[in-house]
Design a binder for these strands. Structure first.
Lengths: 351, 351
DNA sequence: TTGAAAGCGCTAACAA
DNA sequence: TTGTTAGCGCTTTCAA
């Protein structure tokens, strides 16, 4: 079904059909009716591809999102990815644009492995997300001359980026515990080669310094590998160290789950025996199971919003030079960090 | 940058460039080199849109996925959605096609609210997923004449569908508990207006009938609403009923989380005090927190695979009549349902 | 082995 | 107000 057939059916020229469909110029209301009727009868939908070819704006109206393949069974990663995607579609929807989603090959080597959306020249711009970010991939993506936004830290050369203020998040987390009067604040992180962990740690250190508190390597655990297990093992180490810390900042939800499992198995109470601030634990799942933890909220959906808006700015030429947009974080206070006062006990973490 | 400019740079005609790029016909190796060089220098990427217009196959090579907007904070839903999406991209990738992702408006009324991907005529076919499935939407989608696959039950008129064998899952779950020798098997489900719950319940009933066991309404709880809370309240009812059931089949992970919270708060042991079979609890998150539960695995990623394959079949004309593909489920046996035998104790659910 | 030219479905000047 | 025509960037005949 093409505009030609509709035109024939309506007994008008194709340009008239086009005009009706696009509300361009003026069309006699009777002619309009005829066309609309023909469109209705034929269930005609104009071919968007031809449309964008013919139009003056040489754009597809499609943007791409290229995410790393999630690590299997890593529930929180799916969660974050999907929230970012939702954020992006919120904005594309507003603009009447569309989103192509693709997953990056594990190890990018050369331009043969560029994503299909690029190879096929389908997108006006592209948002890259997920860890790790492959340097060669970004370079080749940049080379194609399309608008590019990278979510997350990437250092080799300038790109437009959307960052999360993980430093600020780490700072706030540690500061909160310090202000609550905890003296010996430990930390559990994943591999510090991953920027977001490293930044959270830096924030923690900065807060400790600001409050004239010395940090102690012994209490700062870097635990790479499967995060639930890593969290479990790390908490074990902390609990068995002398003196035992009275609080801990855990830098992601999966590590937190593992750590909480250890505490629970050994009937160690939160926050009575050890206080806890976590990261990104806003889902009902965790809330139901462990009660409302204190955590740093980092607004994943906002990341999507920011990335999409930035990309559209670039496409429209409103963002010449490379720059960053930083998403700020927020402290959500739950019962895992508040010093228990008589009669003021909130819902406890683990009975 | 167009094929024209590349042709000029290489000193050949555009058709020669096209031939080199597509490995069509034979091109002299020297000419080929010249062209490749020019392509390299210009970072030329052929415009995929024009390409698909010009080509003989009048297809865009893009398929669309239209999902319901997830209910906020409902972690397991994000998880399922993202796994299905991953499954779809696995297949589109294999075919060198692309995936457009969009979220449906909450309440679809008329064709003005058709998704952008359809309005803009960008896709060869569309996969609709998520609950609830709006009847009018599907009708209008079908009207456009594009290939259509619906994930989930949809009854008003025939469409190609991908279904999960929830009946079978329910049957297997109940059968497993019966075979383990449990006598009084309860059930917790969400609103039975939602097909997947209703089917799981039917499977459970069928298994009970097959084993000559009467079902008892009192033990079959329909709990609509926020699922973690619903699970908690339902388990409370079951535990307080006389006689207390010795096993329970819980029909989704969020209900399960809520139910487990109740058990834990009241120090009720699983499976000693009550055995448990759940649904779709394969993530590390749950495994770490509650140990390895017995659950029905329903292979979300496979749903994506099946849906995408089916859609491509339809597009290629290999699937004339409407039919269903049913994804079978699998019982994963954990420690929440196995009768404890001396010396054979597996890792317990909640110590 | 290559180039010229037609055409994919549409939009947008230009004419009528 | 409408129709005719020339592209958009590419692929694909058909000739050379």
């Amino acid at each position: 079904m093409t505009i030609k057939e509709v035109a024939k059916k309506a007994g008008v020229s194709i340009s008239t059909v086009s005009r009706v469909l696009n509300n361009k110029n003026w069309v006699d209301s009777k002619t309009r009716e005829k066309v609309l009727l023909a469109v209705e009868e034929t269930h005609f939908v104009p071919n968007g591809i031809a449309r964008y070819l013919g139009g003056e704006h040489n754009e597809t109206g499609i943007i791409g999102a290229l995410f790393a393949s999630p690590v299997s069974s890593f529930l929180t990663e799916y969660d974050v990815f999907y929230k970012i995607v939702l954020g992006i579609t919120d904005i594309t929807d507003q603009h009447g644009k569309c989103l192509l989603l693709e997953h990056a090959k594990e190890d990018y080597q050369n331009s043969d492995q560029l994503p299909n959306m690029i190879k096929r020249g389908l997108v006006d711009g592209i948002i890259v997300g997920g860890v790790p970010i492959n340097e060669n991939l970004i370079r080749d993506l940049k080379k194609t001359g399309r608008a590019l936004v990278v979510i997350g830290k990437y250092k080799s050369f300038p790109t437009h980026r959307v960052l999360v203020d993980n430093f600020g998040g780490g700072y706030t987390a540690a500061e909160h515990l310090l202000q609550e009067g905890y003296k010996n604040i430990a930390l559990i992180a994943g591999s510090l080669d991953i920027y977001h962990y490293a930044d959270k740690v830096s924030g923690y250190e900065a807060a400790c310094a600001a409050y004239k508190r010395k940090t102690n390597r012994k209490y700062m655990i870097e635990a790479p590998g499967q995060p639930e297990e890593a969290g479990y093992d790390s908490m074990k180490r902390l609990i068995n160290s002398k003196p035992k810390p009275d609080a801990v900042f855990i830098t992601d939800p999966s590590l937190t789950i593992g750590a909480l499992r250890y505490l629970e198995e050994h009937e160690i109470k939160v926050p009575a025996d050890i206080a806890l601030v976590s990261y990104g634990c806003g889902c009902n799942f965790i809330k139901t199971t462990f009660g409302q933890l204190t955590y740093i909220h980092n607004g994943d959906r906002n990341i999507g919003h920011a990335a999409a808006r930035l990309l559209f700015d670039i496409i429209e030429g409103n963002a010449q030079d490379e720059y960053d947009i930083t998403i700020s974080t927020r402290l959500i206070i739950g019962s895992s960090s508040i010093r228990e006062k008589r009669g003021a006990k909130q819902r406890p973490v683990k009975h």
